[in-house]
Amino acid sequence: MNAAWRHDGSFESLIALTERAYREGRAPDAIDTVERGGLFGGTEADPSILIPRSLLSPSHTEETEGGGARLRIEAPRLYGAAARAWMSEEGVETALLSVAADYGKRGEAALGDFSMAALRTLVAAVRRVNREIHRLEGFARFSPHARFSPHGDDLMVAVLEPDHNILCALLHFFVDRYALASPEGGAFALVDARRRYALRAKPQASPHGDSRGRDISVEALFGEDATALAATAYGDEDAILWKRYFSATENPARSNPTLQRRLLPLRYRRHLTETGG
């Protein structure tokens, strides 16, 4: 008999359970999941559930992730899948732990055996999350937002409504993209309007000159603070130039709205500068 394992909904908790299943080579009979109360009910979101603790406090690594650091080194693909499973919010924990247990017994072969239903479920969720991350890496639109800037310089704000809780993954992408500017000028914020929270990043130059090792100060905003950031973001002259550029690239002789709708689903267009954002 393999008793229920408790999962509090946080990233660290799921990573710890994954590591346990991997290490013990067995999955639980059931997962006792704590309700994510308030997340979608309009009340304040719980930071411990929405954001990996290590993101806000880089010193939290080994302690907060339990065996997560070991898992990341010993089974990086499994760790990546666990992270995506957590972001998905699709309730694929059972499939994840089943795959993790199988991985503990069979190693990499467990990630190639698509005859296993658990692996198929997990991979489908991972693919959906990856697709959403990749799309929003392109579809995020930043506008300057002076009010929240820490030093009075422009803070660039992007408002998103992702299907999955992927802000932390996007943050890493945009840190690499922007951070490298002068340390004073690279501040930006990502607002998840659906989950009503935001991450504000202020990159700082690394003493080693290495992008991966750069110090980043990340701050989380919740509820009213986050939505206020979204509500007061504004367009500017460059946004107008971009709209005119986009119109000029249209080629009526090749018009194909069906294809455009497939590649650029309507749900993303609300926040795109060129389509009415």
Binding site: H134, E137, G138, F139, D176, R177, Y178, A179, L180, A181, S182, P183, G186, A205, G209, D210, S211, F246, T249, E250, N251, P252, R254, S255, N256, P257, L259, Q260, R262, L263, L264, L272, E274, T275
Partner: peptide
């Protein structure tokens, strides 16, 4: 292309990124 060191902005990623799609897709 990895991010610059201490000045400038920008990087490139091998898969590329699509930022929008025109009316012909």
């Amino acid at each position: 292309r990895t991010p610059g060191r201490g000045r400038g902005i920008g990087q490139t990623v091998p898969a590329g990124v699509c930022h929008s799609f025109t009316g012909d897709g």
